[in-house]
């Protein structure tokens, strides 16, 4: 099966290794993975900031780039949700595009959901050792139903012990442009999240969305915590890339 990998703009800019970890996970499960070179951003920042025309243009671009694959997989519940949940509703006046968006939406998956639901993988190559706590990112959790999937995959790693924190489903305060429009409020919300992470005593906090992870890592370090690792679930599951 041919998979189109939607890398996401944040992974591209900040953490390429998450992209490579995703590649490794999909390829080791036997998928043929293609990375369309022209991909940029799903358009969510524009959509959530009230720039509908900008978001629609980027949606059309993304649809055209990815509709040829059997599946589209992304190491992000947030970008995945944009394609799966938001795209079909963007084209009320353009039925042809609406149909294309709907078709793409039905084949778009967040990484852990894809590994568990579609590929039904038995094992993952990672070799992480330590206690981790999982942060459920909002779009993945509440719009795409990502909850058990990453935990099921982490459970396949012998060296990993999952220690749930309090309020693992609570927002970390990132919220995309919210984090730079209302920096103080955003950081205060992040502080609650980080308190819970630290209280869990885990070696690493793991999540499925880089936006949240940058927010959490930035806050942990500002709070003076230098030891808690902040990792994308793909990195933990894939091991060395």
């Amino acid at each position: 099966m041919r998979i189109g990998l939607f890398v996401t703009c944040l992974v591209d800019l900040m953490r390429p290794r998450i992209g490579f970890a995703t590649l490794k996970l999909l390829e080791s499960a036997g998928c043929e993975v293609i990375v369309p070179e022209t991909q940029t951003c799903c358009g969510q920042p524009a959509w959530n900031s009230g720039d509908a025309p900008g978001a629609v243009a980027l949606a059309k671009k993304t649809i055209a780039e990815f509709e040829g694959f059997d599946y589209v997989v992304s190491p992000s519940g947030s970008c995945g949700d944009q394609i799966r949940t938001e795209y079909p509703g963007m084209f009320a006046e353009e039925p042809e595009w609406r149909d294309r968006a709907t078709a793409l939406a039905s084949r778009t998956y967040e990484l852990t959901d894809f590994l568990v639901t579609v590929l039904k993988v038995d094992s993952v190559p990672g070799d992480y050792e330590g206690t981790v706590t999982y942060h459920d990112s909002c779009s993945g959790l509440r719009s795409m139903g990502i909850k058990k999937q990453p935990r099921a995959l982490l459970a396949k790693l012998k060296g990993v012990t999952l220690k749930e924190m309090n309020g693992c489903e609570e927002c970390c305060g990132f919220g995309g442009t919210f984090s730079v429009k209302f920096g103080e409020v955003s950081a205060a919300i992040a502080e609650r999240k980080c308190d819970n992470i630290l209280a869990s005593g885990a070696h690493a906090v793991v999540g499925g969305d880089l936006g949240c992870l940058l927010n959490i890592e930035g806050k942990l370090r500002r709070m003076g915590d230098e030891t808690t690792q902040v990792l994308h679930v793909a990195e933990v599951l894939a091991g060395r890339v």
């Binding site: 890398v7 800019l13 900040m14 390429p16 990375v35 920096g183 930035g218 902040v230």
Partner: peptide, 19 residues
């Protein structure tokens, strides 16, 4: 984005893009 830095650091990128 100075607002970001009011209450937290910004993690460094790897330095090159995925692409």
């Amino acid at each position: 984005a100075p607002e970001w830095s009011l209450g937290r650091d910004f993690p460094a990128p790897q330095g090159k893009t995925f692409r």
